[in-house]
Design a protein around this nucleic acid. Sequence first.
RNA 1: GGCGCAUUCGUCUAGUGGCCUAGGACGCCGCCCUUUCAAGGCGGAGAUCACGGGUUCGAAUCCCGUAUGCGCUACCA
Length: 496
Amino acid sequence: MRTRFAPSPTGQPHIGGLRTVVFSWLLARHGNGQFLLRVEDTDQKRTVPGAVENLLEGFRWMGITPDEGPEVGGPVGPYFQSQRLDHYAYYAGELLRTGHGYRCFCTKERLDEVRADQQARHLPTTGYDRLCRTLPPEIIDANLAGGMPFTVRLKVPLDGVTVAPDILRGEVVFQNKTLEDAILLKSDGYPTYHFANVIDDHEMGITHVLRGDDWLPSAPLHVLLYQAFGWDMPIIAQVPNVMGNDGKKLSKRHGAEPILFYRDNGYLPEAIINYLAFLGWSYDDKTDILSVDELIRAFSLERVHTAGAIFDLERLRWLNGVYIRALPLDDLLARALPYMERPAAEGGLPDTIARPLDRDLVRRVLTLDQERMKTLADAATLTPFFFEETLAYPPEWLIGKGLDAATALAGLRRAYAVLADAPAWEAAPLEERMRALADELGQKPGPLFMGVRVAVTGRKETPPLFETMLVLGRARSLARLEAALALLAAHTPSPA
RNA sequence: GGCGCAUUCGUCUAGUGGCCUAGGACGCCGCCCUUUCAAGGCGGAGAUCACGGGUUCGAAUCCCGUAUGCGCUACCA
């Protein structure tokens, strides 16, 4: 079994395109076959420099590695179509020789005119008017002798039908009269997608072609080409596209970000693969979490949907959280650290915090925040107060729910005393003492604890208070409490 | 306009003639746990299976129409 991904290097593949890649890759792995990468750079005008490198970087990060392709090479290369021009020229010649193709000398201008005319008259069928299909040999020779540029077109049967097999939906039947004599070889000697694709898939021994269902309308052209060459067809699956929340094909417009965006925002490759695999494919009626290995074992084309699916970032976030929670602490540490240490402008901790971070401290912090993280980037947004010197927050946050400023201040003073007196700086005894204090003050623990929480972290939402103070340490906790006392005192009108 | 594909809770999906008064998951709401936030547990709202006709004792499941959406209609892929 051999599958391939055949992108054109015209920009960054986004999450929607990635889904088809995941299917292809999973299928190849499932079948113990090869997954190849072939770059379809046949449109010089649209080729973006660096696009291939970028793509490969994204793939590497995802752990989706081609068995053959531009970087690793392989027995059926080259893997850039721009380096295979001789193949296409040869096969175009074959088509001309066998009468399945013909030279077309029409200019771009004439083609535009024909199209404009057809549209103006609201003709049911648009497309090339096949003028050159019946050109007398003398004219062809004369044109050739005169050095006139030409394209090679496919000679589509005028009537009858062509059936395009699609493993997902059966056979799709097309009336030949609705088909166009598609251009196979452009006048610059480059092939069009249809031509290069068929030839390369054949020459590279591709057994299963997975591609977006936007290719379905041109499937009969490919069938005709396979027939013209007398080649066996690979199994073809036109998988549905991933759509934006407006139901249209996912694109940059929908915030369809390139793959590396997800890396930079702290998503785990395994979560993305899991999410994407279940977009248009399912295992059974209750499973939605499968590891990469399990996916490889379980994946099959039979359970791929034919309807398009809308990309749901919320669900990806949830799944990402599931994967983060399942990470062994050391893995989490290794993976989260770069997100914390990167510059603040890139989402890291405030720049005032010295790098490198104390790994032991980070480990303890992550122990507390692991179950609160949805992305690795959260490791930086949830935790600055563990590392910062001074805290900034509105003084009124120190006033627990249902308390007035004076009561809160008094409570906080007592809390400071109780904590400062604590014989051991350990979570359980600390909590015990604080609960006793609440009792003594006739307060509920909640509001009292909230005052301490804000004093010590500057936030209203944190991991459990006493474990947090444990990580912070006695000295820092008490110092922050002192600072809070001063802040609240200044903010509270004296009772005099 | 022509051609093609698709259509089950807001979203991802299960379902291949009776097990479906349609199951699971995300999200949402409520309750529990609880010092906050999460996580977790429990429960709830949410789909006349796009609509209309058939076939059948029986249809989300088969057939035919209609509608809607999407895609293609380039010397782009």
